[in-house]
Design a protein around this nucleic acid. Structure first.
Lengths: 139, 139
DNA sequence: CTGTGTGCAAACTCTTTGCATAAGT
DNA sequence: ACTTATGCAAAGAGTTTGCACACAG
């Protein structure tokens, strides 16, 4: 199952100090080939299996955490049962649909944040997340 | 274990359409007596037990969800293993310490958000959460 | 009394881990 | 060859649920 983007994925992995294995290449490919995405482990696992790369669930967990440590992706600040990983590492923002536990991109992200506070002693700001919680109109 | 604030807690519960039972009064008391707080189920459970109100863990879970549905408290948008509940229902913001999975209040919360997007079709904005992720200075 | 709430233990879901096997360099 | 990654299955953590008992109105 070799895609045109394998070379790109492989370069990306090396650049971040990760060995380009079959599974990592496939997962990186799925993650980055289609633009910015946010996925759960399970979703990515399904995609991989459908794409003919039968990785194990544990490997997807491991791999996504390695990608996160390497700074390739990041974890979203949402209070869902599942963890969401985002391929967009920059400060940007999301809708979160209550009840459905669904994450949506905010289309035109021209949100501005004023008066950001100082980080406390010995800490620095790693990332700023804005989560806009949505609910169905009318109770 | 009757505190001076039981009457307050009881009124609060009635106002939100919840029967003021022993356990609910005790939990509401702990939650609201000390100003704004954000706690996990386990933390509140410990406090209750220490305060001489031996509620079960399941009841704390149930109760906090009832409080949430009633609008007395809300769930924080952080990507921790545990769920955080906040007694401050208004739009305000938090530091989240990576690794330690710790939630801190932002002291002077004069953060402003500009250009909030429209909610998608059929949805409305329930809440806006800003989460500032912190990490220890120097890797 | 009657309907709700609570406690307990078991079930469930998501996630992590240990160890043998497989793959990368 | 030597090191690192993967798969599997089992364990772990947090949370939810079913049902008998207890409490509030």
């Amino acid at each position: 199952m070799t895609s045109m983007n394998d070379a790109t994925a492989e370069r990306r992995l090396r650049r971040h100090g990760l060995r380009p294995t079959r599974q990592r290449i496939a997962l990186a490919d799925l993650l980055f080939a289609k633009g910015d995405r946010h996925l759960t482990v399970e979703e990515l696992h399904e995609e991989a299996v459908e794409a003919g790369v039968p990785v194990s669930l544990a490997t997807v967990y491991n791999t996504l955490h390695q990608f996160t440590e390497a700074g390739m992706i990041r974890v979203l600040a949402v209070e869902s049962a599942k963890t969401y990983f985002d391929t967009n590492v920059s400060d940007h923002h999301h809708f979160f649909v209550e009840g459905r536990n669904e994450v949506l991109d905010i289309p035109v992200s021209n949100i501005t944040i004023g008066n950001l506070p100082e980080a406390p002693d010995g800490m620095e700001i790693a990332h700023v997340d804005v989560v806009i919680r949505l609910r169905p109109k009318q109770a």
